[in-house]
């Protein structure tokens, strides 16, 4: 009668057992905000949902060996309210804050956002900008890989069948780094991203750019740091002219990676403006 069952796991090992029972199509369930939409159109999407959202170790946000580790079932609200994340990754705080509204942020999880890997997922550009990695448990053992490699293309990841994303982690940026995230939607809340940009930057003592990372979202099929843009910035002194050059290079990367689409005519100038703006936020101009 029921098209699937839902079982709450209380530990990671129990979850792994439940996820790997032979003969059943099982899926991990965290915030449910994506899965409920799938089930609405296909109630037979799976046989079993394993609710991992209340497993304490999957909700932890902590610092270990210079990395911030965020349990996969931590909600967007928990991430954005974490003092540790606020201190080390404003870009991720802003990205989580831009997701949906309170209701979605109370249920939706960072891990779910990564595993679902929607083209417009707000957390992905921020995580990739932070050089974040995934920690995955499979029946064969644990493994880790960068988020940028884990997410292969929209709605596709390298999560093995029967595997569970345990956590996301990022190295704490060097002191003096700034990061930011900008989102453009068609309204001011509950908006799907038209474009997002995440950036991280640091200046050296003589005011030149020592570190630069730039990632765009909803712009390219795969999300990655734009090395060509970052190289252009490194070693230079921040200036509006430089930001505009970098913004144009960002647009060129978008076109190289995704080709021209119906929306390109709009996204070219809009992404250029957003990129110049975010660079201005992470690289403060020396007082003129």
């Amino acid at each position: 009668m029921e098209s699937f069952e839902t079982i709450r796991a209380t530990s990671v090992s129990e979850a792994m057992t439940l996820l790997n029972e032979p003969g059943l199509r099982s899926r991990a369930l965290a915030g449910a905000t994506d899965i409920m939409l799938l089930l609405r159109h296909d109630p037979h999407y799976c046989d079993r949902l394993v609710d991992i959202s209340l497993i304490p170790e999957l909700r932890k946000i902590e610092e270990q060996n210079g990395r911030v580790i965020i349990g996969a079932a931590a909600t967007f609200n928990e991430v954005m309210e974490s003092p540790l994340v606020q201190q080390t990754a404003p870009a991720l705080v802003q990205a989580c804050h831009s997701v949906g509204a309170v209701q979605i942020r109370n249920m939706g999880t960072l891990g779910g956002n990564v595993v679902n890997a929607a083209a417009c997922a707000d957390s992905l550009p921020a995580l990739i900008c932070l050089d974040a990695s995934t920690s995955i448990l499979t029946p064969a053992g644990g493994q880790s890989m960068p988020v940028s490699r884990f997410v292969t293309r929209p709605n596709h990841t390298l999560l093995p069948s029967g595997g569970l994303l345990l956590s996301l982690s990022y190295p704490i940026p060097a002191s003096g780094s700034r990061s930011a995230f900008l989102k453009l939607g068609r309204r001011n809340a509950m908006a799907i991203s038209r474009l997002t940009v995440a950036a991280l930057g640091r200046l050296n003592d003589d005011g030149r750019i020592a570190e630069a990372r730039l990632v765009t979202g909803s712009a390219t099929p795969s999300i990655e740091r734009l090395a060509a843009v970052e190289e252009l910035l490194l070693g230079e002194a921040p200036s509006d002219l430089l930001f505009n050059l970098a913004a144009r290079a960002t647009v060129a990367e978008m076109l190289r990676l995704s080709g021209r689409r119906w929306s390109s005519e709009y996204k070219i100038p809009a992404l250029e403006a957003m990129t110049a703006r975010i660079l201005g936020q992470v690289f403060p101009l020396a007082a003129a």
Binding site: L184, R186, W262, S263, E265, Y266, A270
Partner: peptide
């Protein structure tokens, strides 16, 4: 919308 304000014309997805 965004497109009309920025470009002066609409763009439509297929």
């Amino acid at each position: 919308n965004l497109e009309r304000v920025l470009l002066g014309r609409d763009l439509r997805k297929e």
